[in-house]
């Protein structure tokens, strides 16, 4: 049998970043570059004292290596193995996120301010891709509502529009993505305010690797993965449903809502089952990716076949 399931490694068993960075520093130090690396901010980036979240799943976490080497990040290539190779060119500092639109207190938040804005939590979420695979990731972040509350949305604010960073120099493969860039996404305001909606700055207790959407992204665990927009630079509160990249590309296949729904098939894939990466057999996909208790009430009375 060719397929072998990868060994399950708990996050605690993975070599901590500080340890391997120290090793790297030691190696390069012997070559005379020590001073340069020692001053790099990354070396002290490991998060400590993360709060545990009541939303955490107890399912086995997908190994760090898989989470960080099997990615859809079209700005860095359309194959899953490309982002880990090419996302190194992304400059994540300095970084700022504009929060604007229908708000009383628009703000431009520097990444360091974002990291300190609210206590960071570890959120172990299921993550289901529209392509029929899924992973379990220990993300780091806090509810997006923490930011939204602070900017005070006005009564006109009904939706939240997100925009990713795009720079053709740092993302030369973006021109072959076949999608319009910069990547944009959107949520209804109540979805954005739902405590499950995560403003994410890390995974596996560490800062986000570039290929996973560094330095800050959104994670919405009850929707297909493409809604969880990476490397955001803008959060805009608006009164009308904002455009979203895959919906612009192919509205027949990708709806604005894109809630995980095993009953509504994608035209090209059945959504009834999924393959958890590392598993041999597929498993049934759960309505709202298993987060119905937290989110189903937002959609009562809505025809989810129509609003897919």
């Amino acid at each position: 049998m060719l397929i072998q399931t990868a060994p399950r490694i708990r996050s605690s068993e993975i070599t901590p970043r500080s340890v391997y960075l120290n090793r790297r520093r030691f190696l390069s130090g012997s070559l005379g570059f020590g001073a340069v690396l020692a001053s790099a901010p990354l070396a002290e980036a490991k998060f400590s004292g993360l709060k545990e979240s009541p939303f955490n799943t107890t399912e086995p976490e997908t190994p760090y290596k898989v989470v960080t080497s099997y990615n859809n990040y079209y700005e860095f290539g359309t194959s899953k193995d490309q982002p880990v190779k090419y996302a190194g060119t992304l400059q994540t500092r300095p970084w700022a996120v504009q929060v604007e639109g229908e708000v009383s207190k628009p703000q431009t938040l520097d990444i360091d301010a974002i990291l300190k804005l609210a206590p960071l939590e570890e959120r172990i979420y299921r993550h289901r891709c529209v392509e029929g695979w899924s992973i379990v990731v220990p993300w780091v972040g806090y509810s997006l509502s923490e930011i939204l509350r602070r900017v005070e949305p006005t009564s006109k604010a009904k939706f939240v529009a997100f925009q990713s960073f795009y720079n053709a120099k740092q993302m030369p493969l973006g021109r072959y993505a076949g999608i319009q860039l910069p990547y944009v996404e959107g949520l209804r305001l109540d979805e954005a305010m739902n405590p499950l909606t995560l403003l994410c700055v890390g995974l596996y207790g560490d800062i986000l690797p570039n290929q996973n959407g560094a330095p800050v992204r959104i994670v919405i665990p009850w929707k297909y993965g493409f809604k969880s927009i990476k490397s955001i630079v803008k959060i805009k509160l608006v009164d009308k449903q904002p455009p979203s990249t895959w919906n612009i590309e192919n509205s027949h296949e990708y709806g604005f809502y894109s809630n995980v729904n095993p009953q509504v098939d994608h035209p090209r894939w059945s959504q009834a089952t999924e393959r958890r990466l590392g598993d041999f057999f597929k498993r049934p996909t759960l309505m709202f990716n298993g987060y119905g208790d937290q989110v189903a009430s937002m959609y009562t009375g809505m025809d989810l076949r129509k609003y897919f």
């Binding site: 060719l2 397929i3 072998q4 898989v66 099997y70 899953k80 695979w133 393959r275």
Partner: peptide, 18 residues
């Protein structure tokens, strides 16, 4: 392909890779 499979070098989603 067989060698990569034996080496567990088929990426995060071996079935997709194959």
């Amino acid at each position: 392909l067989a060698w990569k499979g034996y080496q567990q070098d088929l990426g995060g989603n071996p079935v997709e890779f194959i």
